[in-house]
Design a protein around this nucleic acid. Structure first.
Lengths: 341, 341
DNA sequence: GAAAAAAATTTACGCGCGTAAAAAATATTG
DNA sequence: CAATATTTTTTACGCGCGTAAATTTTTTTC
């Protein structure tokens, strides 16, 4: 590496013995220059460690190579996992992802979209909070910026949606639970932070009806994203009040289930599918820690990889002008049998 | 809001009846214009929804108002929590944080620093992976960009460091454990992903020595960031091989402890501090999930709030030219007694 | 080897804003 | 009210790069 400091593309063109427009072409698309030229440029980059000024580049480009990733709550390991997978795939595709978390706050979600707009991204992957107040803002944003929704569906918004088949999640688990024991009750938050919860409840009601069982939905209080604590305190109350009509509880998501398991532990209620147990507990999502609860949590695994791949692919297809055939894609979950049910 | 679309600052200056340099001054510092002028500008912003072009602004500014946040692994809830707290405090202070995760990969850490450099941020808050290969790269980066390290210390690097007093963490827990039962063994990864583990082991050895007990360090295999699985599989082996010289195990961190609790459960070893229990288990960090293990995990709580506040404050002091008196700050942990020990 | 095609160069302008300097307008002070 | 201080305007240049058009050079084709 040479000691000379190259600051502008002009200077870099000089030292590499080429013209600036050629260098510019190279940085916009390396394959657009002859391979011998490309080699010279890359040798010069290695020698002078030149990087074009990002701001000057993006100022004039019709489209930047930025993509935005917005998740509702980064501290939720399920979304952290989503974000990680999406970032990886964007980088592979040559885009520069920027990650934002709404931290559960609708106002912050609006601010993030504002900022994203001024970042002129090539596209955005958005998992909305799913709170009604922001509906109009998100629709407006999607009509300005190419946006793919994931995880949480909003009708007629954005280029499309990729997510999980929440109905299938619930049906799959209910079938399993009914086949192997008593039909489950359904434990959920009365006012869920995440709209997928509604699909899961509806699927529960439908599946129970189809199987000829009486449903039993237990709604617990609590707002916000501290699901474990809500599951623990609300679950404890439900146990004391004997709200469950069977010895099997399907929780709306794993984080709720994790809290509920703690409530069971505190009341010395033995959880599991063996004969000496009092209750069976199941969740949905395959949260990274579900494997490590005691007993390990039986759940339905989200197909993170397919969802993230589908999300990135859909966005890139749209950005790069390929026709997007499927605008609504959902992936089935996989039953993960562990000891809790 | 008017229907007219304002694209440039020039146009915006016209419609607001002021000159462009005044508008420019306003956006660089609203307080730098007379309050009556400020009011006119803000009224015009509300009416025309004008936002200056971020790229054009940053191109010429000596300093942007971007700050970078880099964590080693965003899917680790401890770092997700750190990131959330740092983001919040940056936004409050009027800066624009961008979050990056190295995903445990040293190459990615280098790429992130490269990108950050070209983003010309006002400053960076970096929790390094702590792998030796990147030492030189990070030192170089810190000499170019105002950087505060957090969580993981590197000597003589950056503006300063803010983190936890890992020695105190270990001593605090060991004192408690020795006071209430048998002296603990120490469970850790042989090759820890995070350098804080070394401090904790050293503190363990010192504390045991000071109390006149024989130390017993159990190192388990495994690399990477899947700590729970490492704790479970390695812990299971250690239990079978009877590697622990006492009935008390202090784990190097909570995630390891969570996996170890699962190993105990699988082998029907009762965990807790009551008389009918076989083993006591403790961790360090106060991982968000530790409250919900069965039994709930006794641990030492990191002072997330003080660390994140200290990190942001140190960086902003440096950016805004105040003298930074303390360049190495660590915060003590708080004992969180739960049922596991 | 000449003709055609492809790639690189030259020239020149524009992007949207920062910012400096001097002049003009407005506000503050006694 | 004049004198001074503060704020705003006018004018003008520069930042680093995208990009278009015309020209020249290099490569490919037969």
């Amino acid at each position: 590496m040479s000691g000379v400091k190259i600051n502008t593309m002009e200077e870099f063109a000089t030292v590499s013995g080429l013209s600036r427009p050629t260098i510019s072409k190279y940085f916009n698309d390396p394959k657009s220059v002859r391979s011998s030229t490309r080699a010279r440029i890359e040798a010069a980059i290695a020698e002078y460690d030149y990087h074009p000024n990002i701001y000057a580049m993006n100022q004039n480009r019709k489209l930047t190579n930025n993509v935005g990733i917005v998740v509702p709550y980064i501290s939720d390991p399920v979304f952290a996992e989503h974000a990680r997978a999406l970032e990886e795939k964007c980088i592979e595709a040559g885009f520069r992802p920027t990650l934002f978390s709404s931290h559960g706050a609708p106002e912050l979600e609006v601010e993030i979209l504002d900022l994203l707009r001024s970042l002129k991204p090539a596209g955005v992957m958005l998992a909305p909070l799913g709170r009604t107040p922001n509906k109009a803002v998100i629709e407006k944003f999607c009509s300005d910026v190419p946006t793919v929704l994931f995880d949480s569906y909003l009708p007629d918004t954005g280029l499309g949606f990729v997510g999980s088949n929440n109905s299938q999640f619930a049906k799959l688990m209910i079938d399993y639970l009914c086949r192997t024991g008593e039909p489950p009750c359904f434990l959920e938050m009365k006012t869920p932070a995440n709209p997928n919860a509604n699909r899961r409840r509806i699927a529960y009601l439908e599946a129970m009806d189809a199987l000829g069982f009486d449903p039993c939905v237990v709604g617990i209080d609590g707002t916000g994203w501290a699901f474990e604590e809500i599951g623990r305190s609300g679950g404890a109350r439900a146990l004391i009040e004997k709200s469950f009509s069977s010895n099997t509880v399907l929780c709306s998501n794993d984080r709720l289930a994790i809290g509920f398991l703690t409530a069971c532990f505190e009341q010395k209620i033995r959880v599991g599918r063996e004969s000496d147990c009092d209750i069976r507990v199941a969740g949905m999502d395959d949260h990274p820690f579900s494997r490590y609860t005691c007993p390990p949590l039986t759940t339905v695994a989200q197909d993170f990889n397919s969802v993230s791949k589908g999300t990135v692919d859909l966005l890139l297809d749209a950005i790069e002008g390929r026709d997007i055939s499927e605008t609504y894609t959902i992936f089935d979950g996989r039953l993960v049998m562990r000891e809790s049910a």
